[in-house]
Design a protein around this nucleic acid. Structure first.
Lengths: 166, 166
DNA sequence: CCTTTAATTCGTAATCATTCCGATTACTTT
DNA sequence: AAAGTAATCGGAATGATTACGAATTAAAGG
């Protein structure tokens, strides 16, 4: 679904590959350095592939599929193994460096938002871009769940962003 | 205020929790007959396999995986094809007879709740049982999404139900 | 700098759920 | 009952993900 967007992301990606990320208007994602801090704290080593992956996610503004990650990352390291990609996606996701969701049977990843307070997202089903929803429905749940052990929750709004409506 | 919001859902809740369909008072899920009505309305035919599937979901109180459906349904019809199961799960899901969600990469299905008003669910990650959450976070979203085209949303709370905590 | 050690990666095979497909069977209508 | 069409069967194909042994590489210590 998102594959058509890929060429765009790509050009974008390589265009500002070593440039400065636009962090304007509320776009506050975890930085590469913060990601490394987390990795080191958990005894993961600095490697070329992880660097490539983190750079890719640092530049990407949307949720992307594992396949899109693969295609993009192969530009920097042709012949990178599937295993390496999936293994690291899983590590990043486990450590909270990446945010993972699922849409229409596709696994989607993006850099974890570094916004201080807990929030949720609108997700564009066409391009995978997001818009933060500051409120959390858990604050408003009135049902008594005292006998339940809550492990987590998910609130996402799906649709098309202004750009994709045109 | 609270009790008013909860009234409908307690019926649903107890129907699930005790594993029985209360056919006398408050039946909470779509009935098999209602499912057939929907199928006929869309020109799907009455078949043995669909009957088996609907019966299974009518009895099941929890979200179940496709694999669990398969194992259960093979009791009634040994040698039923995967294709038949997956095809009909997709049809039921598309027609709103089944409710489908995803947890840890697993697709889960259950009979659609027949509660009048829109609601959400707590889902037990151990047994797949559910508890309705009558409120909907969409009512409380304050972010301006007027330029966005909203296609849908998802709100689910995950955890362990009282039975599975013990 | 060299050595050691354990993590990481590679390359590919294996797995697993799901879907596809041609041939057959079953349902519904006439 | 016959025709027409939907549904199923059985198994092969697909596609994403994971597993695994061998080779490579990063970090730490001397």
């Amino acid at each position: 679904m998102l594959s058509h967007q890929l060429s765009f992301c790509y050009l974008c990606f390589f265009g500002k590959r070593y440039g400065h990320k636009d962090r304007g208007k509320g776009r506050v994602d975890m930085t590469i350095d913060e990601a490394w801090d987390i990795l080191f704290k958990h005894d993961y080593k600095r490697t070329k592939n992880r660097e490539i992956l983190l750079r890719f996610f640092d530049e990407a503004d949307n949720y992307v599929t594992a396949m899109e990650v693969r295609v993009a990352v192969e530009q920097d390291n042709p012949g990178i193994s599937f295993d390496t990609i999936y293994r690291n996606l899983a590590v990043f996701s486990k450590l909270g460096i990446l945010d993972e969701t699922e849409l229409n049977g596709e696994r989607l990843f993006r850099m974890q938002c570094a916004i201080d307070h807990h929030h949720h997202h609108f997700i564009c089903t066409t391009c995978g871009s997001t818009k933060p929803i500051p409120s959390c429905p858990m604050d408003m749940v009135t049902v008594n769940l005292s006998e339940y052990e809550i492990e987590g929750h998910k609130f996402e709004i799906y649709g098309r962003c202004p750009k994709c409506i045109e």
